[in-house]
């Protein structure tokens, strides 16, 4: 019962029936201030560090010559005088590679987890769980030595491989949770029409799983875009830095130039915020619980 319950709520991305949507519209309209005010107060406190970052990035620094209250010169400086554009490019390359490959590998694996039965599937489920609880720090040193042999240290490709593997457990659970919500009757119909198992998976299940794919993609994006530990171990040269390592090294060298530091910070936090602003309703972590423990 509980398993179904968690799963039922797992996909806010699934469009609600018209009646439900109407009711939700009324609820939004009849908000009450006695509930809204506490939420505003909490949000105001919680968001202080983020607001501070944005404000400091657009006010002039003390040595600035401009008298305007708000300026973009911090951004102009970091874009023209620092390597931030290179770091953005590196981060984008690594992150996009991670997102694409993670989804491509986790989707079929999630399908097996969702539809398959038996000892092998349970064993695979346990493997994912153990992999998820392994601290990356224990893998980092052996991987460093292994990657050195293949010239993958200080290499964006090597970094992406580690990220893809780190996303694998949660990405597979997310995909499986979404596939669980697709009735198997649809595939059965396709099989009767002569479709293969693989054909059914691609044409019936995958093409109806956009919210699940997006959810997994967002998760992989966050992991790869935000990671610091793996990047600082594997990346050795300025030119290969991703944004987290670049920003941190810039902060260490210019820790009183808050305008510049915060301008780079804003550059770094903007992509995840924009993605969430638009795709928030597709992102759900609730479903992974059912996949994690349900089989």
């Amino acid at each position: 019962m509980t398993a179904l319950g968690v799963r039922g709520a797992a996909h806010p991305g699934r469009p609600a029936p018209a009646a439900l949507r109407r009711r939700r519209g009324r609820e939004e309209a009849s908000g009450q201030w006695r509930w809204t005010l506490p939420v505003i107060a909490i949000a105001a406190v919680v968001l202080v560090p983020i607001v501070v970052t944005i404000v400091l990035s657009i006010v002039p620094q003390s040595q600035s010559t401009t008298h305007a209250a708000v300026t973009l010169e911090n951004f102009v400086h970091v874009f023209t005088q620092t390597r931030v554009l290179e770091w953005v490019r590196n981060s984008l390359v690594v992150t996009l590679a991670t997102v694409v490959v993670s989804v491509a590998v986790a989707a079929p694996a999630g399908y097996v987890l969702s539809r398959g039965r038996g000892k092998a599937v349970s064993g695979y489920s346990l493997l994912l769980f153990v992999a998820q609880s392994l601290p990356i720090i224990v893998s980092v040193v052996p991987l460093f030595i292994l990657f050195a042999r293949f010239d993958l240290v200080d290499n964006l490709f090597g970094l992406a491989i580690v990220y893809i593997s780190s996303t694998m457990s949660v990405a597979t659970w997310m995909m499986a949770a979404y596939f669980d919500s697709i009735p198997i009757a649809l595939e059965e119909a396709a099989w009767i029409d002569g479709s293969s198992l693989f054909g059914g998976f691609v044409r019936i299940v995958l093409r109806n799983s956009l919210p699940g794919v997006l959810s997994t993609a967002i998760f992989s994006f966050l992991l790869a875009w935000n990671d610091y530990l793996v990047a600082i171990v594997f990346l050795r040269s300025d030119a290969n830095y991703t944004l987290p390592v670049g920003l941190q090294s810039f902060f260490a060298e210019n820790n009183s130039q808050w305008g510049y530091v915060m301008a780079e910070s804003v550059v770094m936090m903007l992509p995840p915020i924009v993605i969430f602003a638009f795709l928030n309703r597709y992102f759900s972590v609730g479903g992974i619980g059912g996949s994690l423990a349900g089989r």
Binding site: V46, L47, P49, I50, V52, T53, L222, W225, N226, Y228, L243, P244, L247, Q248, F251, V261, M262, S265, M268, M269, P272, I273, F276
Partner: peptide, 13 residues
């Protein structure tokens, strides 16, 4: 937002 924003950024703030 606190969960979405990279730790490198929020720790700086």
């Amino acid at each position: 937002l606190p969960w979405i924003v990279p730790i490198v950024v929020s720790s700086t703030a």
